[in-house]
Design a protein around this nucleic acid. Structure first.
Lengths: 162, 162
DNA sequence: CGTGAAAGATAGCCAGTGCTATACCTTCTG
DNA sequence: CAGAAGGTATAGCACTGGCTATCTTTCACG
């Protein structure tokens, strides 16, 4: 973390020596930050997907088995196991060998948040004229990159539409 | 395969017993496909970002140097070099050692497509009430997951707004 | 109640994307 | 025109997220 910050600053200073940037108040650093942000979001995306899915499985089937998780994520079972290991490391889930997977309090909270965001985005896309199945597919990729700010805008849009 | 199918059916039946399935012709496979699609998009995202950036640099500075690319992407220089190697492998760019990086015809086409999509998405987000800087940031992550279908919907929305 | 099939865990491989450190060209300057 | 400075390439490490193959545990049924 501190590492990333220091690098960021170094880059900024190095470049300001160039003096050939057009207008922009924060010309380069901004863009670099945006990319960094997107990369960061990506690293969280997978956690969010798994956590949401585990929540769904508990709601639908009363438990979340590794095989079901793998199947719904469309990955091989060891891949799911590895992802679950990461969830445990991050304090989002627990599991007992050969039993199911369970969300911690944090995990549940994340699942709720993610599910709600997902629903909003799908509803929003449909509201602007995207077919339901496309909306569902696009939302799967988009959702992890929609900031709270943008989500609020979507909600406002939906509300004023009613 | 047979294993997965049988499990799939079990879940489906279990669930249809609930009588709250809407329509869905393919309950589980769909979701797995969506995740697969999102993963696929992710693998292309980085290429798109680099290609667009290289195009921008050529437009702004007349050339695209590795150092500038790295700086704007917010990564270390060897990371940019490695990414460029991948672009070359995929036929999107060429480069001569210690000279600049150049887009192939395919690369240019991709850059144009990506840039246009990016602009549309930012304009759309702003149109629905997202502040410009947030729109810019979110677009950076979102754009790679917006299908042609959804992009069209965004364009229609913008057009009817004018 | 024992066993075989299915579920889950583990090992080991690969590719991608970061990083730092270091070696190697080019270029610019004194 | 030599040498310093800076841009570029390369080597090597770490981690993530895929995969297959294989071993272990559970559990359901004969």
């Amino acid at each position: 973390m501190a590492k990333k910050l220091s690098l960021g600053y170094k880059v900024f200073l190095t470049h300001s020596g160039n003096l050939n940037m057009p207008t922009s108040p924060t010309p380069l650093q901004d863009q670099a930050d945006r990319f960094a942000r997107a990369r960061e979001a990506q690293s969280v995306a997978l956690l969010e997907d798994y956590v949401e899915l585990i929540g769904d499985l508990h709601a639908e089937l009363g438990e979340a088995r590794v095989a079901d998780i793998a199947q719904r994520m469309g990955v091989a079972q060891p891949t799911a196991t590895k992802a679950i290991a990461r969830l445990k490391r991050e304090g989002l889930a627990t599991s007992r060998p050969y039993r199911g997977v369970f969300l911690t309090e944090d995990g549940s909270a994340m699942a709720d948040r993610v599910r709600s965001r997902h629903r909003t985005i799908v509803a929003f896309l449909i509201a602007v004229g995207v077919p339901e199945d496309v909306a569902e597919t696009d939302a799967e990729g988009i959702e992890h990159h929609v900031s709270g700010h943008t989500l609020k805008a979507f909600e406002r849009f939906l509300a004023q539409r009613d």
